[in-house]
Design a protein around this nucleic acid. Structure first.
Length: 308
DNA sequence: CAGCATCCGTACA
DNA sequence: TGTACGGATGCTG
């Protein structure tokens, strides 16, 4: 179904988003950690609708301090974030996202609602490469702070190849790296902070999402997986779609479950927005890096839009 | 909300 | 090429 009104409503908010995102003061590492814990707490306990005081207590700050810090980080209050993270909100996102996805494909490759495509340019690695399990390629990796916790960033010389998350500490880092190594067991991994820094800086900062300087992403996967991941790139920021809807879009209407599996194998978490796919009921059914992260990402994106 | 029918893609032989 | 497997589904009661 195509609704012209969906596009005309979406386009201004996109322009607004791009025009009004001013660079944020770069938060310190410990600020990230505090906000991450607050996000975690809210995401986990949103059903009980905790008060500001309760959230502040959980992260050992006064309510005023938390509010200021949170607002600086996400541009909205903890209370507003809490609201954004509820299932109702996810349903709302779903309602708009589904029709936007339809619209994008009805219009053709550069439909006006393909917001995410404006700043991500992707290319698929050859099937041969995938078959060789990464044989003969160098992957640079490094860790960085992100709004969703400590992130593992992986890059080839052609672009961003992976984003994952660490639970923190040496063990968390090792687990995240292992997770990535299993995807491309024959690739050569080397720690290289300099190589991943440009991607680390840009992936999580909306002020850096610019059409004229698209983020280069390389997708390494099977044919089917790549079709699924490309579809994810057409879901606008701050909206959502369903597994079955993605299945229909790629022409395999009965493959909802296989789509779920493929979405789960997306190596470039967040940048390829697998968090914007939810169950048909609007429930957030699963996430490779933890459901609370998925909630946080959807809430964070709602906040990014609200700030404009 | 718990159970289950169904069914696709993948891995491995 | 065949087959076993299991899942980030989606209905049904």
């Amino acid at each position: 179904m195509f609704h012209a009104s969906d596009i005309t409503e979406a386009a201004p908010s996109a322009a607004k988003l791009l025009a009004t995102c001013e660079p944020l003061p770069r938060p310190t590492s410990s600020d990230y950690e505090t906000v991450r814990r607050a996000v975690e707490f809210i995401s986990t306990d949103f059903r009980s609708q905790p008060s500001l005081a309760a959230i502040a207590e959980a992260v050992n700050l006064s309510p005023a301090e938390l509010e200021a810090l949170f607002r600086r980080w996400a541009g909205l209050t903890p209370k507003a974030f809490l609201q954004a993270v509820t299932i109702d909100k996810a349903r709302e996102l779903l309602a708009s996202g589904a029709s936007l996805l339809d619209a994008a494909f009805d219009v053709g490759l550069s439909g006006p609602s393909r917001l995410h495509d404006l700043f991500v340019r992707h290319e698929a690695m050859s099937p041969g490469f995938y078959k060789a399990k990464g044989e003969g390629i160098d992957l640079a990796y490094g860790f960085t702070d992100s709004p969703f916790g400590r992130a593992l960033v992986i890059a080839t010389d052609r672009g961003l190849a992976g984003v994952g998350f660490s639970e923190g500490g040496a063990a968390g880092d090792a687990a995240a790296l292992d997770d990535m190594r299993r995807r491309w067991p024959r690739a050569r991994f080397r720690e290289d902070q300099t190589a991943i820094e440009p991607f680390a800086q840009r992936a999580f900062d909306p002020a850096e999402w610019m059409r004229d300087r698209p983020l280069r992403v390389v997708l390494i996967g099977t044919d089917f997986e790549i079709r699924v991941w490309e579809t994810l790139l057409s879901i606008p920021v701050g909206s959502a779609t369903t597994y079955s809807r993605v299945a229909e879009t790629i022409g395999a209407p009965k493959a909802a479950r296989a789509v779920g599996a493929a979405v789960g194998r997306n190596p470039v978490s967040f940048v390829v927005p697998c968090h914007r796919v939810v169950g048909k009921s609007g429930a957030l059914t699963g996430y490779h890096w933890g459901l609370s992260r998925k909630r946080a990402m959807l809430g964070w994106e709602a906040g990014v839009l609200a700030r404009g």
